[in-house]
């Protein structure tokens, strides 16, 4: 087994055992152990596991460069829109990359977008949650590709991701700063950001409807230039032994 696979297994076990421990022994919570730390640790471990999974794959230089530059693109279109929170095409770009290049490329693009844009807008505990949110948006878009959706399905997918992203971003804030932790308080925290999530979702859906087909066509063209299947039909060797 590869080293990164072993690390991946260890991380997955650690994350799951932390969660099981937290649910099984609630009397320990509050004694060197609280939900703010638990959520941050588990999400951090999940993100590292994704990175290791990417690392263990054989990715060629072209794809590496593509993911980093698309991360930059998604990050820079995010920065000028920062005054209007969430009305930015970053999620749209990430979904398109995931859709064209597959789940892992989508995840990495999302992760890099979060990291790079926060070098400009400021890091915080929210960075790892953004990595997870955007990463999973790209990842699920890569899975959705197998269903061969039309543009309307993709737009609906973008709309839904606007809300899921909001939920992921609220988890930390809710788990570490609100008491008691009930579904009612989570719903209120969610209502507080529902306006931003709606803008995010609607903007992403609109971008997909207006620009989606063209963007995916451009990306597919690039994809076809460098990724091709090796069809194994070697020409028959001319037999010279008889002559």
């Amino acid at each position: 087994m590869k080293r990164s696979r072993v690390a991946f297994a260890i991380i997955a076990t650690a994350a799951i055992s932390i969660l099981i421990f937290a649910f099984m022994a609630p009397q320990w919570i509050g004694q060197g152990f609280n939900w703010g730390i638990i959520t941050a640790t588990v999400v951090g471990l999940a993100v590292i596991a994704f990175f290791l999974e990417f690392e263990s794959r054989h990715v060629n230089t072209k794809e590496l460069a593509l993911i980093s530059i698309m991360g930059t693109l998604a990050a820079i279109v995010r920065i000028p829109f920062a005054p209007i929170p969430n009305a930015q095409p970053a999620t749209f770009i990430i979904i398109c990359i995931g859709y064209t290049f597959g789940p892992m490329a989508g995840f990495m693009t999302g992760a890099i977008t979060a990291l790079v844009s926060n070098f400009f807008l400021g890091h915080g505990p929210w960075t790892i949650f953004q990595i997870l949110g955007w990463g999973l948006a790209g990842f699920t878009a890569g899975i959705l590709r197998n269903l061969k959706p039309n543009i309307w399905v993709l737009a609906a997918f973008g709309l839904v991701w606007g809300f899921i992203f909001g939920i992921i971003m609220n988890i930390w804030h809710w788990a570490s700063l609100i008491y008691p932790l009930t579904w009612q308080t989570f719903l209120i925290t969610q209502l507080n950001s529902i306006w931003f999530d709606t803008i995010h979702g609607v903007a992403t859906a609109l971008f997909i409807l207006i620009l989606g087909k063209r963007t995916i066509a451009i990306l597919k063209q690039w994809h076809n230039r460098f990724f091709w299947k090796n069809i194994n039909n070697e020409p028959k060797k001319f037999d010279t032994s008889n002559t």
Partner: peptide
């Protein structure tokens, strides 16, 4: 993982 770090630096 260094490849992810390198990609972020590049980006």
């Amino acid at each position: 993982p260094y490849r992810s770090a390198m990609m972020t630096a590049l980006s």
